[in-house]
């Protein structure tokens, strides 16, 4: 689904504001939002569904509100969607159904919990990879109705397989709650293949793409 989140190659944003205070959080509410996203999440949720719900923020809002505000809306939306809270509860910030969270975690606890959260997304596929390193591949050219991770700027383009990354759950299906192991590849495109002769002949852009995004050329 091609919503406004797919920004690669778009014009008109002007120069990058490279200013950086060096602070981890520019505002306190950003730190709270990050902490909320780390400490509580629906078990029935996939990361790809979560990303898709971000993409379903109304387009004008998606382009104008801060990054962590999108996270906040999306967390609330996921809870409401799953029936954990009503829309009224989400808007008011209060619920009748109350419970005690128990003993809070310490900094040492959360550092350990962060460490324990490391996990590879690699899964076992029951088929061999279709493409080898060096294989020339062309990306699918059409848009799809679902969440996908093939950006518009890299569609219908020819590149070469730089690396096989094993099988990962196909994001398009995972965003619909279905785990489909599929081989993933890092595919390198020349900048000129993507952007034409204005681009440097030396430069490349590499993307991580699932097998169903690719056809052999």
């Amino acid at each position: 689904m091609d919503t406004v989140h797919d920004l690669g190659g778009k014009d008109g944003f002007g120069v990058v504001d490279v200013h950086d205070s060096g602070k981890p959080f520019e505002h306190d509410w950003e730190g709270r939002m990050w902490a909320l996203s780390r400490s509580s999440r629906l078990p029935s949720l996939t990361i790809d569904w979560w990303r898709h719900v971000v993409e379903r923020i109304p387009p004008a809002a998606h382009m104008s509100i801060p990054y962590f505000e999108k996270w906040c809306l999306t967390e609330l939306a996921c809870y409401v969607d799953a029936g954990e809270f009503t829309l009224e509860e989400a808007v008011s910030g209060h619920t009748e159904q109350q419970a005690d969270a128990g003993k809070p975690a310490t900094v040492a606890d959360v550092i350990a919990s962060n460490r324990a959260s490391a996990k590879t997304f690699e899964v076992v596929a029951d088929v061999e990879a279709a493409f080898n390193v060096g294989h020339r591949v062309e990306t699918r050219s059409h848009s799809v109705a679902t969440h996908t991770r093939l950006p518009a700027y890299a569609r219908g383009r020819v590149g070469k397989v730089l690396a096989q990354r094993g099988a990962h759950p196909l994001a398009d299906d995972s965003a619909q709650g279905v785990e489909t192991p599929q081989h993933l590849y890092t595919v390198e495109f020349s900048a000129r293949e993507l952007w034409g002769d204005d681009a440097s002949p030396h430069d490349t852009v590499a993307l991580d793409l699932w097998e169903s995004y690719l056809v052999s050329t």
Binding site: H27, D28, W29, R32, M33, L36, S39, S40, I65, P66, F68, E69, C72, L73, E75, L76, Y79, E84, F85, E89, A90, V91, S92, G93, H94, T95, Q97, Q98, A99, D100, A101, G102, K103, P104, A105
Partner: peptide, 19 residues
């Protein structure tokens, strides 16, 4: 945005999903 995050935090704290 600060009030939006506050709403999320108070919901999760009241429900006991996080301290």
């Amino acid at each position: 945005p600060a009030l939006r995050v506050k709403a999320l935090e108070s919901l999760l704290v009241e429900r006991g999903l996080v301290a």
